[in-house]
Design a protein around this nucleic acid. Structure first.
Lengths: 117, 117
DNA sequence: TCTATATACCTAGAACTTCTAGGGAGGCGG
DNA sequence: CCGCCTCCCTAGAAGTTCTAGGTATATAGA
């Protein structure tokens, strides 16, 4: 009965990380906790998804990082949004909204009103 | 100026195909046209995504196919939903709704109300 | 007849994201 | 001292979507 794969995020992780960093610069672990709390635990962020995502996002210049000390007095890498990241967030957010609109249109189509117009 | 990748569907294609087949049994090409029309052309379905998706969905027993003749008098493979597919559609639809809810919650969080509670 | 267009199906492999399943180190409370 | 939580990291598997081709047939129009 082992669940095969969760596959929950569906390509939204970049968007979510960028959004998390608009609230405040945060370290990776903090981003994960913030996303889970903000989604009221609907989402769970795997570290094996999170850290690779942070690296590729940084590589693309949307975020930058600095080592610092966390609230719990541990070494942590703090990420902050760049201006490039801020505009990328807008693009991703509107792309997401278009997808939601498209899927919503499709899902609410009734078999009886199948008239292709 | 070549756009690198569209990446529009974000893992929703199975859901969309299953939904399309609740309206009526359709062939692959028809599913694609129906999805585009129903989404008011917000989505474009690539055939290189569509056909592999149809095969894996059939392999999982959610749809079944029969060869027939299309409205334009061409040979076409018509797919119809199985009962397994019908319940899978419900699962995918509620999974999608949960994701939308989660992402919506996160996106609407204001930096000023960052109080983690 | 010849050609263009739309219909309809198919495939290999690249690109990409996410997950599994580990690993390590340090701070702190009991 | 030990367990737990915090915090970071990685390799490779698994999965989906796209690119970029290919094939074949029906039909309309020149």
């Amino acid at each position: 009965m082992s669940e095969p794969r969760a596959e929950l995020l569906k390509g939204t992780l970049d968007l979510l990380i960028l959004k998390a960093l608009t609230v405040a610069p945060q370290h990776g672990y903090g981003v994960a906790r913030w996303l889970e709390a903000s989604s009221r635990e609907l989402l769970h962020i795997e570290e094996g998804s999170l850290y690779p995502a942070l690296y590729r996002i940084e590589r693309r210049g949307w975020i930058r990082s600095e080592w610092g000390t966390s609230e719990s007095n541990r070494k942590a890498k703090f990420y902050h949004l760049t201006s490039k990241g801020r505009s990328r967030l807008q693009e991703e957010a509107s792309g997401w909204e278009r997808l939601v609109e498209a899927v919503t249109l499709i899902l609410k189509t009734q078999p009886t009103e199948a008239g292709q117009g």
